[in-house]
Design a protein around this nucleic acid. Structure first.
Lengths: 352, 352
DNA sequence: TTGTAAGCGTTATCAT
DNA sequence: ATGATAACGCTTACAA
């Protein structure tokens, strides 16, 4: 059995409670005994037992992470690694640990969260996604369990501390950038419409078109379930079977954009000369694609970092107010966008 | 305060110990009382407290993950996400959770591990790397703490359960593949020589050259500290300042290979016609690079999956024997290797 | 088949 | 300034 507080107490000839106070560096213990106790700890190689401490304190210093359902796809997206990086950094100074549960089905995932929460495994939770009607979110809210969300809550925005980009603005700027290049037929390829990121970016896109009085065609809007390359390929097929093909595309994820680029290339459609593409996240992929993708850098690492910090603040301060933290984004111009040539018209019904 | 075993006991009109036995599904409890207790649990919304259980059991059902030092770079490598994916899957059925500690410096990292171990936070540990003279490894060994390593231990191979590829063979095959294409001047670009992967692959490379009686030049061997793109760029500069430039390269990581490709492309050296490249890991990058990289798929997800399973076996079976699990690899041929043309000779001292 | 009680390693409340 | 002692919520001999 490991060395406990009692062993130290015995060796230092004090009570266990005194040792505990020395650990907490309680000012009411004389420097003399502090020193004696510390020597005893040293000599025995004592390390406090976190589990026991957690039980007594009702606090574990562990933060739970909730990945989106169908996390299989999530792991493949660079978003995962980057956000983990930020979380890891954010948690580090305050000496919290990160814990992940896993689950294949929605139900397993939910149970995992319940175990974390009711099982007392974690002090707080970070949701790595935001979608509509999320049971996990409701659960956390009704239990008043401390949590922070990465992304914008679909409801109760002002009641949930979250870290997000201004995705509406980002998408609007992206669209305006394309409009500025003379494009009038701009398509939108987004991930699942149950994710708020997708919704926000779609709104930004629509808003930009509206302000410029450009036609807003439902045929130009495609949603693909997964942020994966396959998603991009399917989307292209749909889009380019429309009567007037778009000359520019907004794609809400680099990985999907990659699929789009590949498919377009196979169709012998030139990027950027026949079709311009702008994407989001600015993963390493964006730079490597041929042509390199103009993309919106949303600073994922920072997203994770701030989320971790915010949650710790909530955990450590009695009445921390609800906060919304917006991480800035930047348009990174590369070579996937060009001045609009003209639309590829397939039949006689031109669209102005 | 949350609902505890006592509340359930009271409602079901039994002793707390009985409730505990019902949770453990102890056969010595009558079905009648089991049912009654379960109803009480249901009614109160009882969930067992993991922390209390951990303290009583001396077991947490949590597995600790140790990332390599300088984990900043590690996060950027697709290896991280893929291995996490496998770990997550491997841990899932047996209902273990994964926990990460973080640390910027070597010392912090070490302390993190000590906290996990002596603090009783985790039941076992998975080392996500293997390098020479690793203090964390020694620590784990001297404490006889259950752990599994991903990669080949530098020492005591037969005493440490580990999951690895046959990196020697993989590199040998890669080299032979290049030799088969007629290459005689083959360079090796590897990561830090303190990592055993690098060492094994280097040996495989050397061995292949030796068996074919090809010259083995120290100038053709470059080590770059990080598995990142920058590493690849530096390496190329060194290699191609040699009197006879290699016509083929083995690069031990796709990410580094990417750097190599970029640098070579900038130098207007054609891949594969002037220089062939073969790399390792078969990340998504490999496929996306121009030209697409011939790469050795080492099945990283499987590496993680098996590591998790093995550790759980060790934790759950009394005398689980030490195991070595070798995950198979495959050469994935794409377009970065071609039949050797001829060496680019810069001065008169030809190398045959 | 079930109950009693001690113990897991801390912390925190009272005393002294 | 320090010591006893009761929690924290659960498990597990040992009794009954």
């Amino acid at each position: 059995m490991a060395v406990t507080i009692k062993d130290v107490a015995k060796l230092a000839d004090v009570a266990p409670s005194t040792v505990s106070r020395v650990i907490a560096n309680n000012p009411r213990i004389s420097d003399k005994t502090k020193k004696r106790v510390r020597e005893a700890m040293e000599q025995l190689g004592y390390h406090p037992n976190f589990i026991a401490r957690s039980l007594a304190n009702q606090s574990t210093k562990v933060i739970g992470l909730v990945l989106p359902p169908s996390s299989g796809a999530f792991f493949q997206n660079p978003f995962f690694a980057e956000v983990m990086h930020g979380l890891s950094d954010g948690v580090h100074e305050k000496h919290y640990a990160l814990q992940m549960t896993t689950g294949t089905t929605e139900e397993e995932l939910f149970d995992g969260v319940v175990q974390m929460v009711q099982g007392g495994r974690v002090d707080g939770i970070i949701l790595l996604y935001s979608r509509v009607n999320d049971e996990i979110l409701s659960y956390l809210r009704t239990r008043h369990f401390p949590f922070v969300m990465i992304g914008k809550p679909f409801e109760h925005v002002e009641k949930i501390t979250h870290v997000d980009n201004d995705n509406f603005l980002a998408a609007k700027e992206a669209t305006e950038y394309l409009i500025g290049l003379g494009h009038k037929h701009i398509g939108f390829i987004g991930g699942s419409p149950s994710l708020t990121v997708t919704l926000d970016r779609l709104q930004g896109y629509k808003n930009a078109l509206r302000e410029e009085n450009l036609p807003l065609l439902e045929d130009y809007i495609i949603h693909s379930e997964y942020f994966l390359r396959e998603g991009g390929q399917q989307a292209v097929n749909k889009l380019f079977s429309a009567s007037v093909s778009p000359t520019a595309l907004i794609v809400t994820d680099d990985l999907m954009a990659l699929g789009v680029v590949n498919t377009l290339t196979e169709m012998a459609i030139d990027i950027p000369n026949q079709v311009s593409i702008i994407s989001f996240n600015n993963a390493l992929f964006a730079e490597m694609s041929r042509p390199p993708l103009t993309s919106i850098n949303i600073n994922i690492v920072e997203l994770g970092y701030q989320a971790a910090r915010s949650l710790i603040q909530i955990l450590e301060n009695e009445n921390e107010p609800v906060k919304r933290i917006i991480i800035p984004h930047q348009l990174v111009v590369r070579n996937s966008c060009a001045i609009s040539q003209k639309a590829i018209i397939k039949d006689s019904t031109s669209l102005s």
